[in-house]
Amino acid sequence: MEGIADLGGTTGWGPVRPPRRDEPVFPERWNARAFALTLLAIRVSGRNVDAFRHALERLDRNAYLDDGYFGRWLNAAELMLTDSAILAPGAVTARARVLRGEQIPEPPAPKPRKPDYKPTAEGSLRTVDAPAAFAVGERVRAKNMSPTGHTRLAGYVRGHAGVVAAVQPAALLPDTHAHFLGENPQYVYTVCFDSRELWPSGSGTDSRPFKLTVELYESYLEQDS
């Protein structure tokens, strides 16, 4: 899905933050609560990790950025819970206002509407009968596609060619799993790209070439003739 979350190669972000020694895992208390509540919200809303990542992707710019990593987790948790009608839209904000002393009505709890979904096994790895379509050393091209829903095909890789560096274990496909449309298990490939294939020379790009690998699901790839 096109959106703020697909950050690879985007510009204008300024300098990186140098590592700090002994940085706390949760700098503020609410970070810790938000983190744990979000993990639980995936199960309470009857969803899965891929649907959670898609909830993050659907946040608008402010909801994604303004309160940092844990802020976007909190917002994605709320989105999953309202999508599944566990919470009413606006319920969290209304309760927060009440907590700071405002006298406002809170929306009633809706009737839950969880997705028709159950995982077939733990985790994401699966077995497939068909052999892997591509082999180590083979040249492949990432399809120039941009699904409206969830995908793990990063925008900066679309349409570019690289070499299969490894065939990873088959796994369920996030693109359909996030929408409860099936697991579609398939092989995953570590594809190695030359930086000169991906990036224009000039500002914002290292002058010395480098290599970059990404994992790409089989349905993201085609042979590069």
Binding site: E28, R29, W30, R33, A34, A36, L37, L40, A41, V44, D67, F70, G71, L74, A77, E78, L81, I86, L87, A91, V92, T93, A94, R95, A96, R97, V98, L99, R100, A109
Partner: peptide, 26 residues
């Protein structure tokens, strides 16, 4: 808009009071 800290507290309250989340698990 209430702060992220306040909204986190609100979210936890809403889920706990409906028995959907156990604070000890959190």
């Amino acid at each position: 808009t209430p702060s992220a800290a306040l909204r986190t507290e609100a979210l936890e309250q809403l889920l706990v009071e409906r028995g959907l989340v156990d604070p000890a698990v959190v």
